[in-house]
Design a protein around this nucleic acid. Structure first.
Lengths: 351, 351
DNA sequence: AGGTAGTGTGGGAGCGCTCCCACCAGTGAT
DNA sequence: ATCACTGGTGGGAGCGCTCCCACACTACCT
């Protein structure tokens, strides 16, 4: 059969052609059965399936990719060093959700780190070669060139956490605004009124939305918005510590703090302790993320939980749709697909 | 050019043929340049490279895979649930090493979890489709059927931690025997003589080698081997706690313990505290792995460090060799490639 | 009777590479 | 002058699929 000698290949996997011969049908028909086309009679389908089973036929993905111009693979791109990936539960939860959504698909998931310049160059090369049908982008900064590259290469992509209110890419996010409101309203319902807010990095859209939520919750409660109660952090512990110190100096009568992340809250807690404030007696504290830190803090931290696993699943849904009906770019963007998931307040003893 | 209509494909990536035309050479010559064949004159090579640059040519991997019957991808298979993968630093270190060794290669790394039965079935399907050129197997239990499946499919594989002294697959491991000796000799040099050993899971070959190392170090020191000083653990904290309690009951005069892992040592430490023993005054303690646990224990734990990142790099080296000179199975196995890396004792205040 | 739609089905053409054979200089030995 | 070679090169054939056109065959109208 191999007319030009034994080139590689020892066992010799069966091909479509062989299955077709075995089943007594044509090549096209076998292809139709394999790909689940409805235009095949039941009898023929059964015959083909039997032949597939007998021969142990497994489609050759390379041939399929070449002929159909698709790869059946998508990439989860993490624009961070691996270290952060392993350190933050955000990523492993995301991965879990993505994996579960993909498990009843033929799609293969590739995990790609693009933290260093070198890794980014490799990724660009990889994408240029169109080795994936779509890309999942997590944790993207406002000025990242990756989304543009993807658009230029016409590779479908979904982003977790839009870069702005005018995000053009389909996105899945948790309700940062609503989550912030939950946090503040919870503190108010506990009888607090001098509620401060330590923000996240303000070049991250989600952090801004949390500020918005804080502002409107305060305002709706008739307390007005005292800009002096807002201090910028950067999602780090050190930033939280610094901001808290500033706030205490400015407003010694603060009786509650909403921090934009659990790590930030940990920093704030340290500053509060330094200043001799008791939690929650003197100052109630609420974080964001409901990470392991929240559970293990002393006292355990009330925090706003994001459904990260669910977000991963939704991102896959969006991406697969995008890949499936890959249409001319012109018609995209009109029907923006931005998905927002609800958050949940997990109440513990810090508030 | 596309004679049968615009099938997908909007931009139209340039092909080998187009590059050849541009450079005024034949298809074969361009292929030779792309693949770095030496049989091309310098002038021709330059012309082709210029054409490649001008056109922004990127090889089509699917076509290459089909024609050459290779995928340029290898899989790192983790036969554990994702949770363990993220929890144990072993895996992230391994991944780091593997990634760095691969970074100056064309090879793509796939991370595949095979913890559940479902995932394993998917993996089997994946391997049957020959979607990777080779497989890296980490953390394989003695009775895992995966190695046999790989052998049957004739897919090159490298294993981390041989399953027995008769391992047929190429493997990379740290020197468990030597590491155990280092630990025991260290304790003896500190003036201890009643040294106990809490083992790992004994169906893991590496754990057995550690016992061997312990035995021979004791015996070489002229202390003889008291089997009563050896108690089986299972790499878990609970197992370590239980074993330590048993040992203390049996030999209240123990003055040192070598635990087969840091986690085990943490369990042992708890049992020692329960029994009112001070570390290291009454009992010196040494662990294995030099994980984060060791650094954060109270007191900091002396531990045997394995060069995990280096192991990852070596595994890649072995695998790439294996993939490159993929020869008839018959000649394999004769020249077994088992690699063993040295360990290092990291001394801290627990001993 | 002759249309007019469907359903199934076979198989040609083509996806963009790699492999390998043929061939064409040159160069030196015979 | 003839016969090896040897470094370079062109291009046919083929990898195993998917796509789509063509061609049955049925129905069910006019």
């Amino acid at each position: 059969m191999a007319t030009h000698g034994a080139r590689g290949r020892s066992g010799g996997r069966p091909t479509l052609e062989e299955v077709a011969a075995r089943a007594g049908v044509g090549r096209g028909t076998v292809s139709r059965v394999i790909n689940g086309s409805p235009r095949v009679s039941d009898a023929t389908r059964a015959a083909v399936e039997a032949a597939v089973a007998e021969l142990g036929y497994v489609p050759n993905t390379a041939a399929r990719a070449l002929a159909a111009n698709r790869t059946d693979a998508i990439a989860l791109v993490v624009p961070e060093p691996e270290t952060r990936f392993f350190a933050e539960p955000y990523f492993s939860d995301m991965l879990k959700g993505v994996g579960s959504a993909l498990s009843d698909t033929e799609m293969q998931l590739l995990l790609i780190f693009a933290g260093s310049d070198r890794e980014r160059a490799r990724l660009a090369q990889y994408l240029a070669a169109h080795r994936v049908d779509g890309v999942l982008l997590v944790s993207v900064h406002a000025d990242d060139p990756l989304p543009d590259l993807l658009a230029q290469l016409e590779i479908p992509a979904v982003i977790s956490g839009p870069r702005s209110s005018a995000e053009t890419l389909p996105s899945v996010d948790s309700d940062n605004y609503g989550g912030a409101r939950q946090a503040v309203e919870h503190l108010l319902s506990r009888g607090r009124s001098r509620v401060a807010h330590i923000t996240g990095r303000l070049d991250v859209y989600g952090a801004q939305r949390r500020v918005d939520g804080y502002r409107e919750a305060m305002s709706d409660a008739g307390l007005g918005v005292d800009e002096g109660l807002i201090e910028a952090g950067d999602f780090t512990e050190e930033g939280g510590h610094r901001a808290m110190a500033v706030l205490l100096e400015r407003h010694p009568d603060i009786d509650a703090v909403f921090a934009a992340s659990d790590v930030t809250a940990a920093g704030a807690r340290r500053a509060l302790r330094d200043a001799g404030r008791r939690i929650p007696e003197d100052v109630a504290l609420v974080g964001y993320d409901d990470s392991a830190i929240a559970r293990h803090m002393e006292p355990p931290l009330t925090s706003v939980r994001q459904p990260i696993e669910e977000m991963g699943r939704r991102m896959i849904d969006l991406l697969l749709t995008e890949v499936a009906d890959r249409r001319p770019l012109a018609s995209r963007g009109l029907e923006r697909r931005q998905m927002v998931l609800a958050t949940e307040l997990v109440s513990r003893s810090s508030s």
